[in-house]
């Protein structure tokens, strides 16, 4: 999936003057959220975000359809008096397609989020990631550039960050999920980096070496079922040590390709760390 700078369809559930209250308000809003839309419910004495350039659909039980002015965006108004929540969701989906608003739900949003209060711009994440998720901006500040290259459920890069500055908000546990970083977390992060350095500083080489050793052992096995069991055990161990999903390990490219990508990433990191000339 190619991510792009497109806006979600803004759906305004209008219950102000000229519109009756929705009998299925909760069901309707839930159905819209489950399809990925952004919903504004008007009413009461609180403000809502102002109109902007986002494509917008106004839903209501209108005695007389209101007119909206003063926006530059594509606006649509739809009377939903006779529709149930599922039918409303269908209407909204077809309007989304018609207005060219962002599509949702094709990709689980799993990607790193950098805590710039903690990040020291050391480029370890850029050096580590083989999938081109990271890059630098014009001022050589590390940033996440290709979110959709990230391997779903893999938090490995957060494990190499010495400052616990990389979050995955949908991860199960802290501090990777965004919870406050504890002193103990920082000590753990430092230990991980030290271990990596002791092993030669190249985690991928280590993983590959272990995998090759295991493969060599399996090739000597006559019993293919036993070999498969051993291989699975080995992958489970690797996965547990870095909390890396087995499917990510299984999909690692060839040793030559890993070496090429790792060198490419390291070169990017070195370039970013060179003094500005």
């Amino acid at each position: 999936m190619a991510l792009r700078d497109s806006s979600a369809l803004r759906v305004i559930v209008y219950e102000g003057p000229g519109s009756d209250p929705l009998p299925e308000r909760l069901a309707t809003i839930t159905a819209l959220l489950e399809r990925g839309h952004a919903v504004t419910r008007t009413g009461g004495d609180r403000p809502v975000a102002p109109a902007d350039a986002a494509p917008t659909l106004v839903l209501g039980r209108f005695a007389q359809a209101p007119e909206f002015s003063g926006t530059t965006a594509e606006w649509r108004v739809r009377d939903i008096t006779t529709l149930n929540s599922a039918q409303i969701a269908d209407v909204v989906e077809s309007t989304r397609a018609e207005l060219g608003a962002a599509r949702h739900g094709e990709w689980k949003p799993w990607f790193p989020v950098i805590d710039y209060d903690r990040c020291t711009n050391c480029m370890q994440c850029l050096s580590f990631c083989l999938f081109g998720v990271y890059g630098v901006d014009g001022e050589r500040q590390i940033q996440v550039q290709n979110q959709d290259n990230c391997k779903t459920n893999c938090p490995a890069c957060s494990r190499v960050c010495p400052e616990a500055a990389i979050m995955f908000p949908k991860y199960k546990a802290g501090p990777i999920n965004g919870d406050i970083v504890s002193d103990a977390d920082l000590q753990k992060e430092k230990m991980k980096v030290d271990i990596s350095a002791l092993l030669g500083g190249d985690v991928y080489s280590m993983l590959r070496l272990r995998s090759d050793k295991a493969r060599s052992r399996f090739s000597k096995e006559r019993d293919s079922d036993k070999a498969l069991t051993e291989r699975q055990k080995c992958l489970v161990k690797l996965a547990e040590s870095g909390d890396i999903p087995p499917e990510v390990l299984m999909s690692l490219p060839s040793p030559e390709e890993i070496a090429r990508r790792a060198e490419e990433a390291a070169a990017k990191a070195r370039a970013a760390l060179e003094p500005l000339g």
Partner: peptide, 8 residues
Amino acid sequence: TAFEAVAD
């Protein structure tokens, strides 16, 4: 009351 809701 008025509020904003987003899917994710």
